[in-house]
Every structure is written in C-alpha cells, then in structure tokens.
Amino acid sequence: MSTQDSALPAEPVEFSVDLTGHELTRRAHVMNALGAEWDPVEVMRGEEEAYDMLYSGLDEDQQRLYDSLVAAGVLPRRG
C-alpha cells in the first residue's frame, strides 16, 4: 500500500453546506432589483393578456393543433 492510499479515510465523509443565508440574500437582491412598484398580480394579468393574444385568431389547422395540445395536457385549458 502506498503512502497516498493510507491518507484516504476508510469510510465516506459526510459533507453538507447550508445555503439558507445565501438564498435569503439572493432573494433580497431580486426583490430590490424588481423595485417597490413591482406588482405580481399585474404581471400575471399581463401574462394572461399575452396568452390571449397569442392564441387568438388561429386558423382552422392552428386551432385543431391547439385543441389537441390542450387535450394532451401540454398546454393549460384557458377560459
């Protein structure tokens, strides 16, 4: 047995890192970057409007494909 082999522990060593403090700091930075005027409800309304626009005015083939994706659970049911 070489000297390198004898330096290795016989059993696995438990290793853990607590990132709780880092995560709280990261979230604080995100909220600071969003600003005090950020309104999550308004953001969700804007997303819903964007989806409504995206899926409006579909031709017959597009509508059939959209309906099949909704039925398969790929896209959420709207309305």
Rank of each mutant, 00 (worst) to 15 (best):
M53I: 13
D59A: 02
S68L: 13
P9D: 04
R27Q: 14
Y51G: 02
L75N: 05
R78D: 06
G57N: 11
V43G: 05
D61M: 07
M31C: 00
Y55T: 14
P76D: 04
V74L: 06
G21A: 04
V41A: 14
A10L: 08
E49H: 08
E60I: 04
A36F: 06
E14L: 09
L75Y: 13
L58S: 01
E37G: 11
V17H: 07
W38D: 08
L19C: 06
Y51N: 10
P40M: 05
F15D: 08
P76Y: 07
G21W: 01
H29V: 10
G35E: 07
D61W: 03
D52L: 07
R77C: 00
V74N: 03
T3S: 14
V70N: 01
E37H: 09
Q63A: 14
L65M: 15
R45C: 03
W38R: 09
M1S: 10
R64I: 09
L54P: 00
V41P: 00
E42R: 15
S68C: 08
A72M: 08
A71N: 11
S56K: 08
E42V: 08
D39A: 09
M31N: 11
Y55K: 03
W38T: 01
D67I: 04
D61H: 08
G57P: 03
E14P: 07
L34R: 14
P12C: 00
G73N: 03
N32A: 15
R64S: 13
A33K: 11
D39K: 10
L69Q: 11
A71F: 09
P40I: 04
A50Y: 10
G35T: 10
S2K: 03
E47N: 13
L8V: 08
N32V: 06
R26Y: 12
D61I: 07
R27F: 05
N32C: 05
A7P: 00
E47Y: 15
R64D: 11
D52P: 00
A33W: 12
M1P: 04
A28D: 13
L69P: 01
L58F: 03
Q63L: 12
G73A: 04
A71P: 05
E47L: 15
R64H: 12
P40H: 04
Q62S: 11
M31F: 10
E37T: 12
E11P: 00
M1I: 02
E48N: 12
P9Q: 02
A28W: 02
R78I: 06
